[in-house]
């Protein structure tokens, strides 16, 4: 075991760590913003909407994330330049970077998996509570904001926490489309130093720590949630 390379590459690992956290945070944020309407559409939506949401979840959950990522980065990325005028538009600089594609792919993945979780969550809220809220004269949107969504999220929070850890463990895939997060930096080190095990073990250790920090953070959040007293 030789670790002489560690001080030299430490700053790059820090950058990689920041990139990993950004990717994770953004995908969870955008993914959950999509997952809530997707779950809701499956429970109460009119059938075309419910059917579309259901199909979206099936496709996302039925194909490997790696293929989705490559489809979006290489596939869509190779089609964009054919759109006339896109090179002069505001979004072109964004489209040339790999990071936005990774965020889009991971967000869609989170939306697909968590849309399914949210479907069960919305369904698990007792009807009586929603009826009570409606009887109090709340508008449908207010019922959703005050009663339905908070109760649903409370019910599935442990499941969601586990899913977010899975998302963290999927982030190394972004390295295959040149987003150099922690794993990507690790493979640079492997190429430049010809060491096989040390960089991999170091990367594994970072993810191990990240996982445990997240697990503890989620547990603290869970404890702060108002408990249902029987």
């Amino acid at each position: 075991m030789e670790w002489y390379w560690l001080p030299e590459y430490a700053p790059r690992f820090l950058e990689g760590l920041w990139l990993t956290l950004q990717l994770l945070g953004l995908s969870i944020f955008f993914g959950m913003s999509l997952a809530i309407p997707i779950g809701l559409a499956q429970v109460t939506g009119p059938w075309p909407l419910a059917w579309t949401a259901r199909a979206f979840c099936t496709v996302i959950r039925g194909t490997p994330l790696l293929i989705q990522l490559w489809l979006i980065y290489y596939g869509l990325g190779s089609l964009f330049p054919f759109i006339p005028g896109i090179r002069e538009s505001m979004i072109w600089p964004l489209l040339r970077e790999a990071f936005p594609y990774a965020v889009v792919a991971f967000s869609l993945s989170v939306a697909g998996y968590e849309g399914e979780v949210m479907r069960g969550a919305f369904r698990s809220v007792p009807r009586g509570e929603l009826e009570a809220a409606r009887a109090m004269g709340m508008s449908p949107f207010k019922v959703l904001r005050r009663i339905w969504l908070p109760r649903a999220l409370q019910n599935v929070f442990p499941t969601l926490a586990g899913e977010f850890i899975l998302t963290l463990k999927a982030t190394p895939l972004a390295a295959t489309i040149t987003v150099f997060e922690v794993y990507g930096v690790g493979s640079i080190v492997r190429q430049e130093t010809y060491r096989i095990y040390e960089p991999l073990l170091f990367v594994a250790l970072i993810y191990l720590c990240l996982t445990f920090v997240l697990v503890i953070a989620f547990r603290l959040m869970e404890r702060r949630m108002p408990q249902r007293s029987a």
Binding site: T63, I67, W70, Y74, G75
Partner: peptide, 29 residues
Amino acid sequence: ALETRQAAGATREYFMFYMVAGGLYLAVT
């Protein structure tokens, strides 16, 4: 996945090949 990547890289038909691969995985699921 690797066969797909090679096919897509050789023919430059990235979008189609990844869609086909996705379809195959979906069928298995």
